[in-house]
């Protein structure tokens, strides 16, 4: 893969991250590594109950696991381009469950040069194996100006 340069990038440019297989083990590993032991992610008995109008019907993956996958995709791309990941905003749209396979991707939305630097804005999504969008948001990557 050739590394992106700010000059060559244009709206519509696509970035794909690797697929991630979600399992009870992956959820437990994320809980241990993030210290987030909320029973939403670990306790099947608790998850038979309802949360207001919502019944998840079993444990769900941490929403921030999506955030971690999007970050990985963005930083792997940015590091190779000499760019810096500066911002990520996400919303969780659908629960992700053990057995799902999810995959992040991004599409460049706009470019902007400011007084001191250069930026790209990227629409990001995570989709499951049914092509349902489980998370969406927006990222901002900085392409610092070359040293004078």
């Amino acid at each position: 893969m050739t590394h992106a340069t700010f000059a060559d990038l244009a709206p519509g440019y696509r970035i794909d991250g690797p697929a991630f297989a979600v399992s009870r083990e992956s959820i437990r590993a994320f809980a241990a590594a993030s210290l987030d032991f909320n029973p939403l992610h670990l306790d099947d008995d608790y998850m038979t109950g309802s949360f207001g109008k919502t019944n998840f019907g079993g444990i769900i993956m941490h929403g921030m696991n999506n955030f971690g996958l999007l970050t990985r995709m963005l930083t792997d791309w940015a590091y190779a381009a000499g760019a810096v990941h500066r911002r990520l905003e996400t919303r969780w749209l659908k629960p992700v469950k053990p057995g799902d396979t999810i995959r992040p991707h991004g599409v460049l939305k706009s470019k902007r040069t400011t007084q001191k630097s250069r930026w790209v804005v990227i629409d990001v999504e995570v989709r499951n194996q049914r092509e349902e969008v489980v998370a969406s948001g927006e990222a901002m990557i900085e392409f610092p100006l070359p040293a004078a």
């Binding site: 608790y46 929403g63 911002r87 905003e89």
Partner: peptide
């Protein structure tokens, strides 16, 4: 327990 994360921006 039961805190649902709806989204974050950083």
């Amino acid at each position: 327990p039961g805190t649902v994360n709806a989204g974050q921006s950083w």
